[in-house]
Write a protein that binds this DNA or RNA. Structure first.
Lengths: 291, 291
DNA sequence: CGATCAATCGTCCAAAACGATCTTTTGAAG
DNA sequence: CTTCAAAAGATCGTTTTGGACGATTGATCG
């Protein structure tokens, strides 16, 4: 996963001299390792973090194999969303990647991207379908493409120390909607959790087992459909008890959790948006750091 | 089995060239033994402590055990499959990526990887679960990880000319099993089709629309469950007619298509394995090239 | 056992990266 | 407009790297 880059590659990518890049490395602005012979080697994720933190534009993104737009990239989020809608509708995977990678590199938090670009675009495509202006396969394909974009974004996020707390999550049995869980994963990762998706269509029983096995500090579940509300409530409350027992926060999200349903179950937090999830995760981290 | 490693293995594990590693050995930076014939053999612990001494903690001890897949023997594929099973079971996404990427780079066809490594590993994990030796979440997570590996493999495949024929496909309504369709996509891409997944949970009606819109030369469908066999057969036969009308081959796959079911429907080809799919796709290309 | 073939050997060399130093550009102050 | 210091870029001789080469070794199989 960790791809290493030479100073020259990174310098070319962001359009500065090799000297400057080496200086920045030596000043501690970019983490790097040295080979036994003394050559600097940068991790791709560290280079990305630096680019993001400096608001650098990429002159030659292909130097580090990034599918980034070659030009000025100062889009508003709304503009980006509209571009993404078109790219999704036409099934242009490469363009989807470019748009989202661009936004990420220009410094937007992952949670913002998920809320205001990905989810927003996806909803709009759902609207188009309801108006008869898009086919179902376009909506399904958009879902697939978003998922791929999310997976790719995942590879660009900075690495976390192995001391970082673990988060696990997924979707429940009967609920094949993977996208939200994929987004939750990258949002939590950026918030500082070593987030791992268990997959979709998970029976309740195995989630208990997973908590026992991995001792996560946070467990997320995305619920987009509920077959039997009564049984759901009972199972969910049992899950919350297991979570309590192992000191894990239980975070829920998803449109199926209406106010009525929420009243019948216990949980640590319900999140309407990924920004909420991000905030909750960060405050959880802070409160744990002080104890 | 043996606790000693070749220079090539260590070089791969830490991402440097074999030449450099050999030089470092000869400079005394890494202790090593020599066989009677003069080949270097490094102890696992020496390699690890060398990595640590360079101020690098990123490599977990297991990463160094990564085998070098440069041969083409069946033995290597089997070995890789076993390594992959372990990586999937422990949820090590980076290691999964590495195993499969190595195999691809060493020249194995994508179809072979899908059949003999990915699918084989996945089936074995299913077996482990049935024997009670693995939890359901491990099986679900393995599915998720395989999917990510497939998506990543997709980005490594060579680009195709825009003149290449189009293939589209996906899974049907009620069938959330995405993995097979993802593998079909990369296999077809390698065979020379500009393959695009439409997504999963597709109603029949929208597939007709997609064929009309994209005029594919090939349409694949992965069927892992059938709710209403009679209606399925009727819909599938209608789909085959649309495919014929637009000169598209209809390729089916999936365990739900038993012999009985197959007898009741029409299609261009049924594929048990991805190698079959690859062969069919290539012969289709050839026959079209000559006309 | 002997044949076979991938893996590894040692060596070589061009390209890349090193550190150090020097020159140019930038931006703010007088 | 000039001055000046800090940042960025350019230059240079030296060292390191990574890939290529034919020759040798080691694992495997009949």
């Amino acid at each position: 996963m960790s791809e290493t880059l030479s100073p020259k590659q990174v310098a070319r990518a962001i359009g500065v001299s090799e000297s400057s890049l080496k200086r920045w490395c030596d000043q501690g602005l970019i983490p790097f390792l040295k080979t036994a012979g003394g050559h600097r080697r940068l991790a791709l994720q560290d280079a990305i973090s630096f680019i993001r933190s400096r608001g650098q534009e990429l002159a030659n993104p292909e130097a580090i194999r990034l599918p980034v737009h070659t030009g000025k990239t100062h889009w508003t989020l709304e503009r980006a969303r509209d571009e993404l809608i078109e790219a999704l509708n036409s099934g242009d995977e490469a363009l989807c990647r470019r748009i989202v990678t661009d936004l990420y590199l220009s410094g937007h938090p992952v949670a913002t991207l998920c809320d205001e670009v990905l989810t927003a675009a996806f909803h709009e495509i759902g609207n188009l379908w309801e108006c008869g202006m898009a086919q179902i396969y376009q909506e399904r394909r958009a879902c697939e493409l978003c998922l791929r974009v999310v997976f790719q974004l995942r590879t660009l996020l900075p690495q976390l120390p192995s001391s970082a707390p673990v988060a696990i999550g997924g979707t429940l049995d009967g609920d094949p909607y993977t996208l939200a869980t994929g987004m939750a994963e990258i949002v939590l990762w950026e918030a500082g959790f070593r987030a791992m998706t268990l997959g979709n269509l998970l029976p309740f029983a195995t989630i208990h087992k997973a908590i026992e096995a991995h001792h996560p500090r946070l467990m997320w579940l995305s619920v987009s459909s509920i077959r039997d509300p009564q049984r759901f409530a009972a199972e969910m409350n049992r899950l919350f008890e297991t979570a309590l027992k192992f000191n894990a926060a239980l975070v829920l999200g998803g449109a199926a959790l209406t106010e009525d349903v929420r009243r019948s179950i216990r949980y640590s937090s319900y999140c309407d948006t990924f920004t909420h999830l991000d905030s909750f995760a960060r405050s959880l981290l802070l409160s744990q750091a002080t104890t």
